[in-house]
């Protein structure tokens, strides 16, 4: 983990209209930094604004106010074409592997789509090799290249989603509840895969989750969010050993302990 900041947010706010002059403030004056090579986790309960914050960082939605800097460049004001190069450098892995893959495309075409959009592999054989490489990286069999998503299990679908996200060699991966819909034994496989890929490819990762045990395994630093505000940011070890904020302690004490685990 370096000291260099990859992406940062300064005092960003996003609110949605509720009609009749009422507004819901989803993200309220939040600032955070993500360093190169680290995994930063955003945890909080549903509706706390963690997904909104991730979408703001990716510039999928526009903030009402505040600045977002990617490697020092302010991208919050950029539009359309000027933003495009940054899109390539940030990729997302979604929660539900079934609905994030086009059921009518073969695995080959799903993974090839970002490569085609960016004209990364103009040559057909080169494209094929790249796809096979990616399948290998996510531990899928080469023969699956011509399968359809419906022929894959949930874990395998999520692996395809990961292959698609890393196809363009991005610097930042945003995982929005990427393992929440998976079964325990499959979840462990995917968590291991994410951790290994992150290390091998030198990725930075923003990991959104509501599951504090998963975050404990994968994250270097943790931001705890509540009601659109970050209430605590700390190293993973520090946070779990000495939670500073009352709400963090409350969250930790709510996890059902397994056997005689030393949870709070």
């Amino acid at each position: 983990m370096s000291e260099e900041i990859l992406i940062s947010a300064r005092n960003i706010t996003k609110s949605y209209s509720l009609g009749r002059k009422k507004r819901h403030i989803a993200v309220n004056d939040v600032s955070l930094e993500l360093y190169k090579g680290e995994t930063l986790a955003l945890v909080g309960e549903s509706g706390c604004g963690k997904s909104t914050l991730a979408r703001l960082l990716m510039r999928l939605i526009k903030a009402d106010s505040g600045r977002i800097c990617f490697e020092g460049t302010d991208i919050s004001a950029l539009s359309g074409r000027a933003l495009k190069p940054y899109r390539k450098r940030m990729q997302m892995i979604f929660q539900d592997p079934a609905s994030s893959l086009d059921p009518r495309l073969r695995i080959r075409d799903i993974i090839a789509e970002p490569l085609r959009v960016w004209r990364v592999c103009p040559d057909k054989t080169e494209m094929e090799r790249r796809i096979l490489d990616l399948l290998d990286m996510v531990e899928l069999k080469e023969s699956m290249i011509d399968w359809y998503p419906r022929e894959l299990s949930g874990g395998q679908k999520q692996r395809v989603g990961i292959a698609r996200a890393i196809a363009l060699d991005p610097e930042l991966i945003i995982c929005d509840e990427s393992v929440s819909a998976l079964d325990v034994s499959v979840q462990a496989q995917i968590l291991n895969l994410l951790k290994r890929l992150k290390k091998e490819l030198g990725l930075s990762c923003l990991f959104i989750s509501h599951d504090l045990s998963v975050v404990n395994f994968i994250a270097d630093r943790v931001c705890v969010m509540r009601g659109g505000v970050i209430c605590e940011t700390a190293d993973t070890e520090t946070l779990y050993a000495h939670p500073g904020h009352e709400y963090t302690r409350y969250l930790l004490s709510s996890i059902p302990a397994i056997g005689d685990d030393p949870v709070s």
Partner: peptide, 24 residues
Amino acid sequence: RGLLSSLPRIGKNPEYLTTIPGNI
């Protein structure tokens, strides 16, 4: 045993989780 070792747990920090190989 496989299920229990696949669970990430607070207070135990392995580099990688022990998983059950394969799929159902």
